[in-house]
Design a protein around this nucleic acid. Structure first.
Lengths: 150, 150
DNA sequence: TTCCGATTATTCGTGTACAAACAATCGGCA
DNA sequence: TGCCGATTGTTTGTACACGAATAATCGGAA
């Protein structure tokens, strides 16, 4: 792909961790999470919890699995995230009379208020995450990243 | 930062999860891990386990905490990763006579052989992760990503 | 030398992540 | 109508991820 041919056993020596996409993605996300936790405020929401709340603000009344798909969370993971938010009284869960398998989720009053309060921080968190880049670089980066994310 | 001023309460409505750097980073890494697990082979190494092994191949005889810093892993996380690799006989751990707090790590014969065997897959995993981008885009992306990762 | 701050490894608690297996339910086809 | 494959939510098991606390040790300043 780059300059040198890459299919012989000789390329073993040139695997530099710092240049691998996966390692860089992991470290970048790591840094973002640290920024998030430092700036999200006293609500102490995690990135996933906040993502779930924001989605529910825009799309109330969807089921747990649907919300999971919309936030790229596994059903088992979603279960835990929702459980903690319900325990904190930010989300309400009720059975769907149409389909007894489903649990319909919606923001509680406190949950809605919380989202509105912290969404300003969320914008600042994104800005801080992208701070090392210029304005033009940010646009380029986000466009390429979106394609990598699929 | 961009066109519109961003400090009034009115910007609450325009928080689109899909455009946030953190969400995209998380999904991109998610996709990478899936690729990694599908292509790493029967060794069944995880990304972190592989990173630790590669580092030890290049820098034998370092301590657990040092290795953690070199692979961006928390000391507590490192502890678990190393433990599993020791259990599998891929890493050897011995006390440092110079400093009795430290555990000196090195690859076992099996560990070294395994790294050499799977490092080719690792190159293909990186290529697959970056597949959505052209060659020029990959270089741009990695350069920007490295800066975001700090 | 003694004492104190820093370092090393470990453990605990909480929170993702996801594969796999499960029971309950749904929907549609024979 | 009865049956079967798909969907929903849950649980279990393994593996990160990291803050916080701890015990052992080190190194240098008083």
């Amino acid at each position: 792909m780059t300059a040198s041919e890459d299919d012989t056993p000789e390329r073993r020596k040139d695997y530099v961790l710092e240049e691998q996409a996966g390692h860089l993605l992991r470290r970048a996300y790591q840094r973002h999470v640290a920024i998030f936790q430092g700036m999200i405020g006293e609500s102490q929401l995690t990135p996933l919890q906040f993502a779930a709340l924001v989605r529910l603000r825009d799309l109330s009344g969807i089921s747990q699995n649907q919300l999971g798909r919309l936030t790229a969370m596994d059903a088992a993971t979603m279960q835990g995230v929702i459980k903690r938010l319900v325990d904190r009284g930010l989300i309400e869960r009720q059975a769907d009379p149409e389909d007894r398998r489903r649990l319909i989720l919606s923001l509680s009053k406190a949950g809605r208020a919380l989202v509105e309060n912290v969404i300003g921080n969320a914008h600042r968190i994104t800005a801080e995450t992208l701070k090392p880049l210029s304005s033009a670089e940010r646009r380029t980066f986000l466009k390429l990243l979106a394609r990598i994310a699929e």
